[in-house]
Design a protein around this nucleic acid. Structure first.
Lengths: 337, 337
DNA sequence: TTGTAAGCGTTATCAT
DNA sequence: ATGATAACGCTTACAA
């Protein structure tokens, strides 16, 4: 005893002269009665033995690991970071642990992580990212997910997904619609779109939303440029627009990072934003506040927090859809010309 | 068998008519020889039983959990997000799992998380954040950490810490020094500092670096304002500076977020950056690239990746200090007046 | 090549 | 109030 390694219940029992069972009872919140004197002896022995419970052994027998897994695209992306934080906050409060997996939108990697999480008996697994539009591997994942669900694992999707489980999402189509509608209401008529990754369901929905708003308001769709949700892709798209005058009245990015890339490229080129061109994004992630970017707020932290609460059984029926909200800021203005 | 729950080795053995040991041998990368026919039968049985290994049970007997814990201030902060990503990337490649804990710089919370991680037998624990200058709870944590180290847990600190273990850090004092020195070399003489949280060791080092550069170059220290590493604190500090003319030639923030807050406040007030005032930060986190902020690059991703590699035993002696690098960008310019 | 059995550190049931 | 003891699912000598 007492030579580096942590003590076990057996060590404590030996030291205190009690059985493993008794040691276990005092060292955990057992309601089973234990004599005060015995309790004291066990506590002292535990301290001496440097006792630390084995969460592994405990989980093995109780079948509760107190682990939540979150599969994100990339934690560095503020969108996912905020979701992760939401999950971890409520998990930590219940002394649950949060495992983060970065799948980079690669279905194979995602599936791989899912399996590992399942092997660890994670009590809940959160899919934070959106699925791909046409994913041939999706069926395999779905099979795995459904089997895990049948085994009692809580599955929560924070974006459109082909498999079952609880889904807590924002209406991407409507968010995009509201944003485009706002720009139109500001008088803009030629509005360029910098889209998100084709094939990504969430990105497709946003594109549909933009287009529907145009159609509803009788505005012809402006230039449609490719993008991939990154700052660089927004920057590049703006450069293309700059090379192809005249500039549109406004530019919407499929997400904040893209829109920020657009704003920076435009301003570097001496174009006044919003004086000459209005720019807006979707997400309301932290950097967008720095830039004073007009955007549509998506309550990412809440998304994660709700997912975790659901997994912990703190809320029975989570709301299916969480509300987005238009956040007008300094990168858009009424059309002046 | 086959009714929701995943099968165990016992199920597989029963189905295949072999012992648990044999099932285990084929279902894992055991080098122990198994007849081809037997192997086939076991594989078939595993599929039928929906076998999935229990990482928990495995870890309990092998004493290797394949889990790395990272204690950060806040994953939403790009500084920590990038570190987390670095850890997770190398962990994931080795099919290790990464557990993220947000301690918000609260020693008690940090200690709490450390204990939980220890209870789960995390093979390595990374302290990503800096410790506090005068922390009365530090001794307790140190005791816990040392005990865990003695028990074989790998401990890695990514910032100054009072306890043992491997430390992979950047020289904060030198990074700040280089930045201040650069501003001075641009001709600036009245340089304001927006400091980081007092009591945070890393913030103190940076302040010392700024001051030493001033002293070395015979420049009188400019106004010193409080800050706490947040965008808001940078913004507020700039407002105070604005109210108290004349403006300094340049302003350094203790980190990027602070500096970005300063830039935005200044520009909103119509002050030209860098025309009238130069601004710079430390970190080179993603948002700083958006703003084209002059900063000192800290290889956060590498910090995390190196920490993980060390834990996985992929590098024996990690470099003690990782190099920072001055990154001049568009928020600083030669003093014009 | 295959099987037996002793743990790993807990919890939980059933006696005492 | 306390103690045996059987799981939990797996790995790993040691036997056969």
């Amino acid at each position: 005893v007492e030579e580096g390694a942590r003590g076990s219940l057996a060590d404590v029992g030996r030291l205190a002269g009690v059985s493993i069972a008794t040691a276990s009872r005092v060292l955990n919140g057992s309601s089973h009665p234990v004599a005060a004197s015995t309790r004291a002896r066990v506590l002292a022995a535990a301290a001496e033995a440097g006792y630390a419970p084995s969460a592994l052994a405990r989980a093995l027998v109780t079948r509760r690991t107190r682990i939540i897994g979150v599969i994100v695209g990339d934690v560095v992306d503020p969108y996912f970071a905020e979701i992760t934080r939401g999950v971890e906050d409520v998990a930590g409060r219940a002394s649950y642990l949060t495992i983060v997996c970065n799948a980079d939108r690669r279905p194979a990697v995602e599936h791989e992580y899912f399996n590992v999480l399942r092997d660890y008996n994670a009590e809940g697994i959160v899919f934070a990212g959106s699925g791909l539009e046409a994913d041939e591997d999706a069926d395999e994942l779905t099979t795995s997910v459904e089997r895990a669900r049948a085994g009692g694992t809580h599955i929560v999707s924070l974006a459109p997904r082909p498999f079952g489980g609880t889904s807590v999402t924002v209406d991407n189509e409507a968010a995009a619609y509201d944003l485009a509608d706002y720009l139109i209401s500001l008088g803009h008529r030629r509005i360029a779109i910098v889209a998100g990754p084709t094939k990504l369901i969430a990105a497709e929905r946003r594109l549909e939303g933009f287009l529907r708003a145009f159609s509803d308001r009788g505005v012809a769709p402006g230039p449609l440029l490719d993008g991939d949700f990154t700052y660089a892709s927004g920057h590049a798209a703006a450069l293309r627009l700059l090379a192809d005058q005249p500039l549109p009245d406004a530019i919407v990015g499929a997400n904040d990072e893209t829109a920020i890339g657009v704003v920076m490229a435009l301003r570097s080129a001496g174009v006044d934003v919003p004086g000459t061109v209005s720019v807006a994004g979707i997400g309301d992630t932290r950097p967008s506040r720095f830039i004073e970017l007009t955007t549509v707020s998506i309550p990412t932290y809440e998304l994660g927090a709700i997912a975790a609460r659901h997994i912990l059984g703190q809320i029975a029926e989570p709301p299916i859809t969480v509300l987005h909200r238009l956040v007008p800021r300094a990168t858009t203005s009424r059309r002046s010309t």
